[in-house]
Nucleic acid binder design. Structure first.
Lengths: 160, 160
DNA sequence: CGGTATTAAGTCGTGCACAACTTATTAGGA
DNA sequence: TCCTAATAAGTTGTGCACGACTTAATACCG
């Protein structure tokens, strides 16, 4: 009786994606939610040294790539609403990392321009992805696979 | 000159996990952050009908599995602090889904017990995982793989 | 037993995140 | 042209999420 007897069939707690399980640990959504918060927590001490929060860091990643974009374009890149970005951008401006100026050709739009300090922060941030990548501890293949699956998931869930 | 000339080597925007790229779309952390919010957004209309937020739904998933646990145990299951859970649990109590009672044998601890309404909500919630699983659109293999990778990532990032 | 350390829960302040709404500006059609 | 739609950004209210701290109760050690 090594199999603990009855129920070896029902002992299957494997997580079929489409089954109706209400067990927390069967849910991909929870694995996702927990992982996202865990990664953000890992960033926190590093970003504290730069005086940034995690969403602020993401904003700067975008602006370091292409400066002088609008709030709308930034929101499209990060999948965030203006109601989230407006106060966040005000804080970044108050901290002297960027300026917000109405565009002359379209007064509805606000252009975001890095200040010298904002641009310079890029160098200090250079070590952050390495440190995080290290902490994540995934192989290049696992990392690529995870990104691929997450993008597929996001695309599927966003449409319809 | 079909290769757009110079730079065909540097055109490799592939995302090595440990490279120092500061490009937003190379970052696993952003894929994770975006996916987590996208999935939560997909849950929202379904949970609205149950009068729940997503974190509240997660709390109920735990309580439907094992009722009468403490705030501490709940926090361990969800990886959440008491400073997050206390107000959330108050709202669930105000909505009549659970009761909080100090344990007689240890007055520091608070036991969470589902009310009849809280227990009954489980039936109405039964269709939620199916609907979400469907919207996610992953094969069983992809789903299992994603969960596996996310759990590995969480474990790696949480330690040390 | 007494006193200190530990633990459990909760409060407070800050910063997202988003829905619903407002304001201002531009676009486009009758 | 006017005038209605659509668009961009921002405001407001609610609910997380977490660090730092507080309060109360239990554990443990000399």
């Amino acid at each position: 009786m090594t199999g603990t007897g009855t129920g070896s069939r029902t002992d299957v707690r494997a997580a079929a994606p489409g089954d109706g399980s209400l067990l927390l640990d069967d849910q991909l959504c929870f694995a996702l939610y927990a992982a996202s918060r865990a990664v953000t927590a890992r960033y926190r001490p590093l970003l504290d040294e730069l005086g940034l929060t995690y969403p602020q860091y993401l904003v700067l990643l975008v602006l370091w790539e292409r400066d002088s974009i609008s709030v709308r374009e930034l929101g499209a890149a990060l999948h965030l609403e203006s109601s989230t970005l407006s106060p966040l951008l005000k804080r970044l401006e108050a901290n002297g990392l960027l300026r917000r100026e109405r565009r002359a050709d379209d007064e509805r739009s606000v252009a975001l321009r890095l200040t010298r300090d904002g641009a310079r922060l890029r160098e200090r941030a250079g070590t952050v992805p390495l440190a995080i990548g290290d902490a994540m501890g995934l192989t290049p293949e696992q990392d690529a696979l995870a990104k691929q699956l997450l993008r597929l998931l996001t695309a599927n869930v966003t449409e319809g």
